[in-house]
Amino acid sequence: MKNNGLTLLPQGYDDLLKDLKARVHKARMSAVLAANAELIALYLDIGKAILERRDAEGWGTKIIERLGNDLRLAFPDIKGFSPRNFRYMRQLAQICTDTPILQQVVAKLPWGHTITLIEKLKADNERLWYGLQAIEHGWSRSILQIQIETQLHARQIDAIKVSNFKDRLPELQSDMAQEVLKDPYIFDFLSVGDEAHEREVERELVKHITEFLLELGSGFSYVGKQVHLEVAGEDFYIDLLFYHLKLRCYVVIELKAGAFKPEYAGKLNFYCSAVDDLLRHESDNPTIGLILCKKKNGLLAEYALRDMAKPLAVSDYALTRSVPEDLKTSLPTVEEIERELQNGAD
């Protein structure tokens, strides 16, 4: 169809093009995932064969090295037949024999991620947990290493978390909110000293917002710092305000440089009520409040939250650990995050 030299597209063309693009993208991703699964299956087969020969015939390191050299000569276009990689294949075969479900997980991860799980972790249940998290959140290898080094599993699974979520939220949202919560939060990337005041920590967190978002976890979007609220003619300012995309709610964060005090809960409860009335959309879930303090007494915090009307939690934060230098190369810039937030707002 033409009109004055221009091709007129039939009705529905744009929808068809969009659909076909999605199918091509899906097919390409499926091909990549299938190729990766085949590679992992090959490495597992090699690892199992090495284990069998070692146990049955006492094959040692020199024989295994010779096997790798011969395979490299036979298949010069295929990487991965180094003695070091053979050791990882053997370890992976042993791990998957002991914990078969791990085979399904590593089949969905790049080989480098699997090596990290083998090298950095000793317990198979932790390897399984981090592997599943890496798949769900699309972590790069360097991000996976950071999460392991900062003991994310212990902070999200094993920590005693203080909140009133179960009493103040529906069961599904309560479980999700509790899963999102960490204790403690590790702000390794800050340049402030251990005795920094709240405003210093706040300024540094906003300055390093990409790393802060990484530590908060998947789903957090930054709204602002010192967010102004006017209630009954008086001005109030929230330290940090976020929106959580999965929980579909605002998250108010108050920073405290010292130990937790019961009166902090009342102030945070007030802020959550104000956000619910002034900012919350009718489709949003109830606002959640989080107090981040340098130290908390669990029983004191539990008592303070028990009769509060809003869903609140208390966690510690620490400033003293270190994060690998390659963090910067694996995260988006502040400008990129701001553009994403702006696009979402549009």
Results as ranks from 00 to 15, higher is better:
280 R>F: 00
119 E>D: 15
112 G>H: 12
144 L>S: 05
62 K>I: 11
123 A>F: 11
23 R>I: 14
74 A>P: 02
109 L>D: 06
172 L>N: 06
194 D>N: 08
282 E>F: 10
215 E>Q: 12
127 R>N: 03
105 V>M: 09
233 G>D: 08
143 I>E: 15
153 H>Y: 15
31 A>W: 11
320 T>Y: 03
121 L>D: 00
204 E>Y: 08
66 R>M: 14
154 A>P: 01
181 L>G: 00
300 L>C: 04
93 A>D: 10
60 G>Q: 14
109 L>S: 03
75 F>L: 12
139 W>E: 04
162 V>F: 06
117 L>I: 12
251 V>Q: 01
26 K>G: 04
126 E>G: 00
52 E>K: 06
307 D>S: 02
9 L>V: 10
156 Q>Y: 02
254 E>I: 04
203 R>K: 13
224 G>L: 09
237 Y>N: 01
291 I>L: 15
159 A>M: 11
102 L>Y: 06
291 I>P: 05
100 P>R: 09
261 K>C: 03
308 M>D: 08
322 S>E: 13
82 S>H: 10
310 K>T: 11
105 V>K: 01
159 A>V: 07
46 I>H: 03
219 G>Q: 07
303 Y>M: 08
74 A>C: 12
96 C>D: 06
32 V>Q: 13
336 E>P: 00
152 L>C: 11
78 I>M: 10
306 R>L: 09
298 G>H: 14
49 A>F: 13
228 H>D: 07
208 H>L: 05
224 G>K: 09
15 D>V: 14
168 R>S: 05
188 D>V: 03
263 E>Q: 12
202 E>Q: 15
138 G>L: 08
170 P>E: 08
131 G>Y: 11
213 L>E: 01
167 D>M: 08
152 L>H: 13
343 N>D: 01
346 D>V: 10
293 C>D: 03
190 L>Y: 04
291 I>H: 09
75 F>A: 02
157 I>M: 13
163 S>H: 15
214 L>Q: 12
202 E>A: 09
216 L>S: 00
291 I>E: 03
180 V>L: 09
41 A>G: 05
165 F>R: 05
254 E>L: 05
282 E>H: 14
253 I>Y: 03
18 K>S: 15
53 R>K: 13
4 N>M: 07
282 E>D: 13
276 D>K: 15
29 M>Q: 14
92 L>D: 01
82 S>G: 03
88 Y>C: 03
74 A>F: 08
43 Y>V: 02
238 I>D: 00
187 F>D: 02
79 K>P: 00
67 L>K: 06
36 N>L: 04
320 T>N: 11
12 G>Y: 09
262 P>T: 14
302 E>Q: 15
187 F>E: 01
191 S>I: 06
321 R>F: 05
254 E>V: 03
38 E>F: 06
264 Y>R: 09
35 A>C: 11
